[in-house]
Design a protein around this nucleic acid. Structure first.
Lengths: 187, 187, 187, 187
DNA sequence: AATGAATGAGACTTCATTCAT
DNA sequence: TATGAATGAAGTCTCATTCAT
């Protein structure tokens, strides 16, 4: 019973690693089955098609990003904390972000991938907007701060460093500095 | 005489479009040849291998980004101008950025792609650094501004909006605002 | 169950016939698969590569030459009997020898073919040496007979008639006559 | 003018070497042209088809075997001398015999190759028969000697050692010994 | 649930040859 | 004579998927 789940998990993990290493361009089912120790036709009992397996990988990836916002912190600190956690993750688990990038690119051609990613991103978007709105309320940031644009800027920046673990920390720090209250509120 | 060049060009263009539309995952040579109106074996007369054709596409793409910095402008305006041009390009020619993203991802597995991209990026990096350094000299920005980190932030942000033409303008504007002198220098 | 073996067998036979008819120069996989009544990609299910199929053909051929020495006969008669059997085989199943010749030639470029053939030949060589040695012991042949050279002479002669079924009988008879006791022992 | 002949020669030599090294299985025109320093389509000005080039190679090979019988020697010595020269040639120029073997095998499928080889072999056959006949006349060998069979035995033996330079000398010596007068005439 | 056999589409690449220049 | 472009047939091999066991 859990055997079945374990097999599925093993397949998803193997697929995840394969995508991280070779991208979708080189993503083949046979090696995945082999890595899970089963015959390649048995794989189809767990995932009817290749697309199904990819969907499961996407779900696996997004599930790793359950928002871990620290609502007890003040807005600016919360933003900094959040970005630092991401920067750390990029360094510690680079494959996660590589696969996410592959999926992002793939979403352009695959509607269902796009939907899943969009849904996931919306949660993130909302959480970021909450930070900025709260910060404006608390006069941490000026009323003139464009919340929507700021949210997108943060998101774009994070996406832009997904492939550059070595630059992650300095980039998020620089972004936080630019958003730091002492500068913006005095404007 | 130029017939020959035209054929090559036609193949590169067809390949470019195919990658833009289907990514490398679905990149096949036969349709490329067909799009250029030649037999698929004739394609190998121009590009011995698939990799050779991809290299030509990469060159084609990077050649579109010959630095168009406006050195007559003051630093902050130059940065804004530069980013606005990129934002416009993302809207006007989104495929260019999609393909660039595909290549960026591919560079992780293909050494020669990586080298070419790195070389191209270095030019961009240098130009951005020049802007910030000049700005600091002219007291547009504080001496405390971390130039390297700022450069990487700009690059990351641009990479992060490559797939989102709809957000490009507001994101680069927001970034420019954060870098705008009146805020930073008074800090 | 034996279906599977039959398929393999059928492929090996088809390959054997194709080599006999067209040599390795014209040896193509698609017709082999067609002759066995299967899709050409299914062939790869049984033999991963062309070389694997060729190895199977080689094995098939050598297995047809299981030594059939008649140890109950006296040495000279044994030699004659052995050579006559070969001469008959050359006439009755010429393709077997043609393919063997192709493989011999191929062994020059293919190490693994060479190893297999050498192994097979060694058995033959030993059996022939046994005949001559025994004959010398029994004073059928003079002590001065060069066993090693005689063995190689027999082998060379047999190889030399593989392509000439029409000459096989007279050649082996002539060789036997030269080795006939009444001539050699009186020397 | 001789330029043209030189080119042809160069192509034939290159083809000869290629066949010696890779056999007909791996015989391709492009490398031949390259080895002769010309474009692969230019090759077709000298040899309209691949078969034409092969025919030229065959001619080149057979021309190397102009009978060099030493008619001043007595029959037995002439045979020995002839076989020794062949044994030496097998050691000194093994490629010549390798290519000859390839051609022999090919003759089974290519009528024109067969004709050329047969014609060449007939000359050799006649020369050998002359030796044996003369020997019988001079009472070197018994009247009972089967001339035709002896000729074929010699030919078969030589063909059988073409691929074994290391065994050539001992084999021809052994054959000569068996044909040596002191043994046969006393029978 | 699991497998090995089978399939058919299709991948990239190479070849001998011809044609126009 | 020489060449580069072009062709089309064919090469080996791989893939995702289905089917019978």
């Amino acid at each position: 019973m859990t055997e079945q789940l374990d097999r599925r998990q093993a397949l998803v993990h193997a697929a995840f690693s394969a995508i991280a290493e070779h991208g979708f361009e080189g993503f083949r089912l046979r090696p995945i089955a082999a890595a899970a120790g089963i015959d390649h036709s048995t794989l189809h009992h767990y995932f009817r098609t290749k697309a199904d397996l990819i969907a499961a990988v996407l779900e696996h990836v997004t599930s790793q990003f359950e928002a871990t916002m620290h609502n007890d912190l003040e807005p600016a600190a919360r933003l900094r904390q959040h970005l630092n956690e991401i920067a750390t993750a990029v360094v510690v688990r680079p494959e996660l972000f590589v696969v996410l990038d592959e999926l992002d690119l793939r979403a352009r051609r695959d509607k269902s991938t796009e939907v899943d990613i969009d849904h996931d991103e919306q949660g993130w978007r909302d959480a970021l907007a909450a930070i900025f709105n709260e910060g404006i309320e608390q006069h941490v940031w000026s009323m003139n701060l464009n919340v929507a644009a700021s949210v997108e800027l943060v998101i774009a920046t994070v996406k832009g460093i997904r492939l550059r673990p070595d630059k992650a920390e300095s980039v998020v720090n620089q972004l936080c500095d630019l958003f730091s209250p002492e500068r913006l509120t005095h404007a």
